[in-house]
Amino acid sequence: MEADFELFPAQASTIAPLVDGVFWELTAVTAFFTVLIAVMIMVFAIKYRRRSQELPRRIEGSLRLELFWTIVPLVIVMYLFYHSTSVYFTMITPPADAMDVYVVGRQWMWAMQHTGGQREINTLHVPVGRPVKLTMTSQDVIHSFFVPAFRIKQDVLPGRYTTLWFQATRTGKFHLFCTEYCGTNHSTMRGTVHVMEPRDFELWQESQADGSLAAEGRKLFLKLQCVVCHSADARARGPVLEELYRKDVPLEAGLRATADDNYLRESILNPRAKIVAGYQPIMPPYEGEVTEEQVIQLVAYLKTLGRGQTPLRVEATQPPAAYRAPEPPK
């Protein structure tokens, strides 16, 4: 984040050289055709400048030329399409071993949470050389997460998760900008991505240690009395949540869904949107009851919940306040 002027932005991620490769091809094509047209115009305008009132010969056109300047550009743009699209799919496909970080955007700040429970505002510490996957949502309007040195950008929407990934290749501090206009202080919704050596990152993590995200999520799972219905025993009124993450879930009417982050988030905030086959729509919506950060903690907990790990139900615990008893079967 040196304040010196540089004509070309720093390349600080594995993706950056790939994007710049496509960029330079496009720049070469643009420069070639711009110079070609400019030179042709200047040569013709000077060579054929009006010297007399004699009228030039009429030329209708040339099918061969038309085909030439249709097919050549077509071949060029199809190559560019192929190259840029193949880079694009690399850019949007995070490696399986990526380290998770959760981001909540709100007017006008970025709140980051690491799986270890570390929380940051407007800064993001990451280790160099390790893929990082961001799962992002907004608490109000649309924002956009942009790190120019990494060549990555993704809008951050209210009401759903979007993701972004990168692998930093250089240590240092890099700009983070909000690039979707979001109101009065949009231009100050900026931050810093701090790329550290892995050893330094571990030290930083330890110095920030707090309850991990999943541990916080487990506390919420008990506090919000989720366990009363999702109890994983004979009296369970809700589906078992163990080993649920990324599983295929059968829904009513023969539909299916994948239990990804967005599914889990929606099933907490608005459970009636997708009802698991064989269950009653009895779970109250938690929209407005929990913050986006708390949803992230719950999701993080569910991701770690393995077979036989559901906490025991305490007999005295009451079902959630908004719970309505189902009609008894007749």
């Binding site: 994007v19 496509v22 960029f23 496009l26 743009v77 190259h83 850019m91 120019p148 060549r151």
Partner: peptide, 17 residues
Amino acid sequence: LTGLFLAALAVDLHVSD
């Protein structure tokens, strides 16, 4: 021609907005 940069998905992600 600079419109091609925006049609190209890989570059558009970087230069959008």
